[in-house]
Design a protein around this nucleic acid. Structure first.
Lengths: 258, 258
DNA sequence: AACACGTTTCGGCATCATCGAACACCTCCC
DNA sequence: GGGAGGTGTTCGATGATGCCGAAACGTGTT
């Protein structure tokens, strides 16, 4: 692990959290001397990853935008999910999201609008703490290592009044998810939104993401047909990616299977 | 400028060009030893900026996606352009794009669909060589330093048969653009697409981007009313950003005005 | 089973990033 | 108008750190 590269990424993530930062603020947040971070941001500015506004504050630059487009276009999971998610949205009448884990969050990499044609925000790129979304719980249930890491650095943030932040409670939820392959959440990240999600596996039978629907909490909290549709979609995508079983019999405890 | 950070960005840009690369390919493209780039990509992988697929190849990771969303939301120019571009699309009946310069390219940071409701691709994040698009020429005309840098490293890529790659010819075009503040292009980046664009200035009277419409080449190549609308939009956005004049009387030759 | 390819690890050397302090700059306040 | 505080930026010496060669590991191939 290279120190300066790691710090450069830390700078970007810091700018991601607080959109505009003075050099001094940035330095103090990272607990580094002024001149050290200056060297880093100067490099990033030269490359267009960061830009400096008129008042001298720093923000993310257009370079990151170019990168994200390529990521979306080249992402295998997203490519395979395109048709299946479209069909799921059509059949369920709900918005569909595909997410992948990143650190403690789920990043939405694909989003199909609810078919009713109403005005909706495009949610690609947003990130939600994994424990507060069905997508995240679906992933965590089949990635014990990640779940342990997440629980170890508690306390978990409470997004709404109904976000579950108790690790024992969450562990029990994950156990149930392992049994039927379906994760749910209601009002846990955004009030009024309920979710049903299922994990997606790759050719290694490793969970790499999840697919799920979003619907108003009032509408249909728990309907068997919806979860069946979601599960079927997750199975189809996993199969396209080369997964052999769904869910895989031996949930890989550690990536040390030989 | 920090070497390893610069190299890390170079890795990301290389992965942007070729979506999937083996470590060896990556190393040879950067003319660096294998182990050196391995250290860099390992750091980027740990941070989620790069991910490694099953076959060991590297690609961009979900981390870049999170970053881009924040960039779009926090971009001052984009924020100010939102309402004006909406209106421009409505009045002109064309798709509208806002772009900012990055190295030799223009990156599209905002895109309003043509109001006819047809299926269109979202173009946010794509980048086009500056000399092949009206957005780019509008910027280059009022940023002589950038234009010189661009011309210095010719040859310019020829995107279509009608892309202008002759620097003298381009310089003459920029001169005309400086006069009336309107840049045009027809079939120069994509066959069948014509553009009309105008530059946007900030509170320093420095050009920071451009706004323009896209229309079928066959439709209306050069109509005075369209360019007036485009110009008016650029003026409005520039004014919101604090620009004092449009275009500024003294095109800043160098950023050394005191 | 042996090979060939590519990825990953390891350790010594020299480079390179680091950090403190001084400089230039602006804004705000007196 | 002039000073004081807070910025961002530059510079140079120090030694920690990233760089690179070569060797080991893992994987798919012949």
């Amino acid at each position: 692990m290279i120190q300066s590269v790691d710090r450069a990424v830390a700078v970007l993530l810091e700018l991601q959290g607080a959109r505009r930062l003075r050099l001094t603020e940035l330095a103090s947040r990272l607990s580094l001397p002024n001149s050290t971070v200056h060297g880093i941001v100067a490099t990033l500015v030269a490359r267009g990853m960061v830009e400096q506004d008129l008042s001298g504050r720093y923000a993310l630059g257009p370079g990151v935008l170019r990168l994200s487009n390529v990521y979306l276009d080249s992402n295998e999971l997203r490519l395979r999910a395109l048709t299946w998610t479209e069909a799921l949205a059509e059949r369920s009448g709900c918005a569909v999201r595909v997410g992948v884990p990143l650190e403690r969050d789920i990043v939405v990499i694909h989003h199909v609008f609810r078919p009713d044609g109403s005005h909706q925000m495009r949610e690609i790129g947003i990130d939600i703490p994994a424990h507060g979304t069905a997508l995240g719980k679906a992933v965590l249930a089949f990635d014990p290592t990640r779940a342990q890491r997440l629980f170890a650095v508690a306390p978990l943030p409470k997004l709404t009044g109904r976000t579950c932040v108790d690790t024992d409670d969450l562990a029990a939820q994950l156990e149930r998810i392992r049994e039927d392959g379906i994760a749910t959440a209601s009002d846990e990240a955004i009030l009024g939104e309920a979710e049903v999600a299922a994990p997606i596996f790759d050719a290694n039978d490793t969970v790499i993401g999840a697919v799920g629907v979003v619907l108003p909490t009032s509408d249909a909290p728990t309907d068997r047909t919806v979860s069946d549709e979601v599960r079927r979609t997750a199975v189809s995508i996993s199969r396209e990616l080369g997964a052999t079983a769904w869910p895989p019999r031996s949930t890989q405890r550690e990536p040390t299977e030989t």
